[in-house]
């Protein structure tokens, strides 16, 4: 199902990008394959390269090195543009347009436009068609931007922080709208988010970026099965050698570690299966701890 020959929603090899003004590489040596039909969480700390990756996937930026493919097409080409929709963080909408005008514009600009879906998405948010976009709440603006993107009937939907600025109720509603769309037809979604709890039962693939590089590109079920959270006496730390320790923390005599065991675990440990949020936090923190170690060594 995830073999290299299977059609990919998003894939990259040796992908790199640098912003001229900022100097350093925003992305470097990125290689991954996200299978189609997945709902992918793109996670990473601020500045890890999430937005850059989505802009590259949507064809708004060109790679400096390597390549990226959206639905096996080069982003920005006609074949990719008609099948890929990108909603950026700033959600570019015309503030003076009414909601109805905005949807009419979408219909004009897209040959595959389906009016039913955007109208439902707007209606479910209780948004009046005559309301001006500039007067909408952040949650309502997100809905209109989503409606516009879904009206294209994309096969791949790229969303940069769609849940930011939304209250918990609206977050749930927006996720429900997205999941409903995915249930009805073949739709791959890649969404970046810092709201890890919301991703727990919605995403089935994780793409984790760390300092511009790919930290994880895996099925969430596999991640849950492979990771253990162990707690025990700090004196027993030697028993963890030989396992992939993602993150470890010592507090007094107690040691807590998130790890991917390679074979049976020796020693006296209290072992639990962590949830997705804990696993992702461990991988995000792991990088920081490593950087700290390096600094001490230097």
């Amino acid at each position: 199902m995830t073999g290299p020959d299977e059609p990919a929603a998003l894939s990259a090899t040796g992908l790199g990008f640098r912003y001229r003004a900022r100097g350093g590489w925003a992305l470097r040596d990125c290689g991954f394959t996200v299978p189609r039909g997945r709902i992918t969480a793109l996670v990473g700390r601020n500045g890890a390269g999430k937005s850059t990756l989505l802009h590259l996937a949507g064809g708004l930026l060109r790679p400096a090195e390597g390549e990226i493919r959206a639905l096996d097409s080069v982003p920005g080409t006609a074949s990719a543009r008609s099948r890929v929709a990108l909603v950026t963080q700033d959600k570019p909408l015309y503030p003076r347009f009414t909601v109805a005008d905005t949807l009419r514009m979408g219909a004009r600009l897209n040959s595959r436009w389906d009016p039913a879906v955007p109208e439902r998405v707007v209606r479910e948010g209780g948004i009046a068609p005559g309301a001006r976009v500039g007067e909408l709440s952040p949650g309502q603006r997100t809905r209109v931007a989503l409606a516009l993107a879904l009206g294209k009937r994309p096969e791949l939907l790229l969303l940069d922080e769609p849940l930011a600025d939304l209250d918990p109720v609206v977050r749930g509603e927006v996720m429900a709208t997205l999941m409903t769309e995915a249930a009805e037809r073949e739709l791959s979604i890649v969404l970046s988010s810092h709201v890890l709890p919301e991703l727990e039962e919605t995403c089935d693939w994780v793409l984790l970026l760390r300092d511009g590089r790919v930290g994880l590109s895996e099925d969430t079920g596999t991640l849950r099965e492979d990771h253990l959270l162990v707690t025990g006496h700090a004196d027993g730390a030697a028993a963890l050698a030989g396992h992939d320790v993602v993150h470890r923390r010592t507090h007094g005599r107690q040691l807590t570690a998130l790890l991917r065991p390679r074979g049976p675990l020796d020693g006296d440990w209290h072992v639990t299966h962590p949830g997705l949020e804990e696993i992702l936090l461990g991988h995000l923190r792991g990088a920081e701890a490593l950087a700290g170690d390096l600094k001490e060594a230097a």
Binding site: G172, E173, A176, M179, T180, A182, A183, E201, T202
Partner: peptide, 12 residues
């Protein structure tokens, strides 16, 4: 679709 609309979980 009904389950997903009510719970916002992944359809898969």
């Amino acid at each position: 679709r009904e389950v997903v609309a009510a719970t916002a979980i992944n359809p898969n």
